[in-house]
Structure formats: C-alpha cells, structure tokens
Computed example of a mutant assay.
Amino acid sequence: MFYHDNELQYEVEVHDPDPRFAKMLQQAIGGAEGEMRVALQYMFQAFAVPADKSEYRQLLMETATEELGHIEMLATAVAKNLEGASEEQREEAREDAVIAEMMDSGQPRQALSAGLHAMPVDSNGVPFNGGCVVASGNLAADMYANIMAESTGRTLAARLWEITDDPGMKDMLSYLIARDTMHQNQWHAALETMDDHLPVPNSFPQEKENQDVNYKFMSTFKDEQPDPEERWTQGESIDGKGEFSYGRQPGGGEPDLDEVIEAMHNEVN
C-alpha cells in the first residue's frame, strides 16, 4: 500500500530555464541509470523477499518509495526548465550549430506529446524498458546489482551537476548524489549482514562444480602468455574458499552438431 503527500521530497528550483538541460535530465528519469529503474528494481526485489527476511523487504520497499520521490523531483525539474524558457533563450541556443541540432532532433515529444513536461523516456526519447530491472530472487545477487545501479546513477548525476550552471539544479543534483552515496553504502552494509554468501548463490554445493577452473583466470590470447601476477591470478580467492591461478582455455574440440530437423528448412542448396 502506498500513500502520497503532495509535497516534493526536496526543493526543486530552476533559476535559468534551459530546454537543453531538460532533455539531459530525462536520462535520470527513464534511462538505464535512472530513477525509474531503481524504483522498480527495489520494489520487485522486495516482492520476492520471504517473510522470515522482513528486515530486507522493509529496506528495499523504503528505498523504492524514496526513488519514486526522486522521479517526481526530476519531472518537476524538467517541466520548470521547459516551461520557463523564454523565446530569447530558445533562439540564443540555436546560434550554436551543435546545440541547434540537439534542439531540433532531441526531444520534440516533450512539447508534442507531453505539453512541455517530463516523459518516461531517456535522453534520446527511448521509452523506459523494464529489461534493465534486476530482481533475481537471490538477495545477495540483488544487492550487488543494486550497488552497480547506484554507482552508475551517481555517475550520471555527477555528470549532470558538471553540465549545469544553474544553482537550483546543482542543489537538487547535490541532494540526489548524496542519496546515491547512502544507497551504495546501505547495500554494502546489507551484504555484510549476510554471512558466507559468496559465491552467489551459496546454496549450490561447490564440490559439484568443476574444481579445475573454479578459481582460474583464463587467458584468451591465441599464444600462451605469462602470468601477469595480479590480485586475480594468484593468492587466496575473495570468498576464501580457493586459490587464484592463471591458465588457458581447456579446449573442447570442434562442434559436432546433429542433423538438422527437416521441418526447420535449414538445408543449404
């Protein structure tokens, strides 16, 4: 169950409206690094948490709901950048040939389909795709995916912060960057509460996996190369259950396929 309070999670102010920046902000809404992705990712992960792990469900659902608030903030920022832009600002932007091309081919649907408001799309206008949502049902695997999601999200927000000179947008992005800092840390902290979770999933008996290659870094060069003697080619493995080594692909002979099924019409005439 969700409840909505008609108040932004954090203040959104735009001092100098910029339609170009509005297009860039769309990436933080509907892009692969954006808030729609993490809101749905954490929500669907929470749906899969069993009753005896309720503390993780609460952690995920609280964060998912926070991310919904971030979408609202960014959508407000997009609208303020679009609706507040003067005709003079729009024409000045076109004096730069590169910017003019961005204006012409960037996000016309923000005006045509959304009346100068945000849309559930990325900065190229591509609709959000739930295929980037990771919800495996394995808590450890999901936490690692969440760290990656927050890392790329923080990178995007930092890049947007560098692009804009608007003090209101810098303030909003500074808030979002700070929340990404917390979220990265909380997912790491959640992993620390999971004893002996490596390798993921830890439920598969390791004695049944191939013992010759389970901690071997494989070189894929055609010619044999010397061991680079890096952290991932020697010494104790990260999970503490093996020793890293260096080697080459074992090789398995040429593929020997069965006859094709006649109904598939795969014959070569």
Rank of each mutant, 00 (worst) to 15 (best):
233 T>A: 07
114 A>E: 13
193 T>P: 04
221 F>Q: 12
20 R>G: 11
197 H>I: 12
78 V>H: 02
98 V>T: 12
21 F>K: 07
125 G>C: 12
107 Q>S: 12
216 K>R: 13
199 P>T: 07
189 A>L: 11
54 S>T: 09
140 A>H: 03
134 V>G: 10
196 D>R: 08
10 Y>A: 14
103 M>V: 12
57 R>T: 13
34 G>T: 07
179 R>T: 01
46 A>T: 00
234 Q>T: 03
36 M>C: 02
168 G>A: 05
219 S>D: 11
267 E>H: 07
222 K>V: 03
51 A>C: 06
264 M>G: 01
152 T>L: 10
112 L>S: 13
228 P>R: 07
179 R>A: 13
183 H>N: 06
147 I>M: 10
15 H>M: 06
106 G>E: 14
93 A>D: 15
63 T>A: 15
267 E>R: 09
54 S>P: 12
70 H>P: 05
4 H>K: 09
245 S>R: 00
71 I>D: 02
25 L>K: 02
264 M>Y: 04
84 G>P: 05
113 S>H: 03
156 L>M: 14
13 E>D: 09
260 V>G: 04
145 A>Q: 04
146 N>H: 04
207 E>T: 07
230 E>P: 01
226 P>R: 02
175 Y>E: 05
179 R>L: 10
111 A>H: 10
173 L>D: 00
102 M>E: 07
247 G>Y: 05
105 S>F: 14
267 E>C: 02
244 F>Q: 03
124 N>T: 15
144 Y>K: 02
9 Q>C: 12
43 M>R: 11
115 G>S: 06
250 P>M: 08
233 T>M: 06
191 L>D: 06
108 P>H: 03
228 P>E: 05
142 D>K: 04
163 I>K: 15
150 E>R: 01
179 R>W: 07
257 L>S: 00
217 F>H: 01
39 A>W: 10
191 L>P: 02
217 F>C: 00
59 L>A: 14
85 A>Y: 15
54 S>A: 14
47 F>L: 13
90 R>T: 14
187 W>D: 14
13 E>H: 03
52 D>P: 00
66 E>V: 08
142 D>C: 01
95 E>S: 07
73 M>Y: 00
85 A>F: 15
37 R>M: 09
37 R>L: 14
213 V>Q: 03
108 P>M: 04
130 G>Y: 15
166 D>P: 10
188 H>N: 15
4 H>L: 11
38 V>I: 11
94 R>M: 12
153 G>E: 05
160 L>R: 11
235 G>S: 04
52 D>I: 09
143 M>L: 15
66 E>R: 04
239 D>C: 11
143 M>Y: 10
246 Y>S: 00
120 P>R: 05
176 L>G: 02
228 P>H: 04
164 T>C: 08
253 G>E: 10
4 H>E: 13
182 M>P: 02
203 S>Q: 10
197 H>N: 06
12 V>E: 03
25 L>S: 08
136 S>Q: 11
199 P>S: 12
260 V>C: 01
136 S>V: 03
142 D>A: 08
155 T>R: 08
266 N>A: 04
191 L>H: 02
175 Y>S: 01
210 N>R: 13
90 R>M: 15
75 A>Q: 12
232 W>P: 01
240 G>P: 06
245 S>E: 03
42 Y>L: 13
268 V>I: 08
50 P>I: 01
181 T>Y: 12
60 L>P: 00
10 Y>G: 14
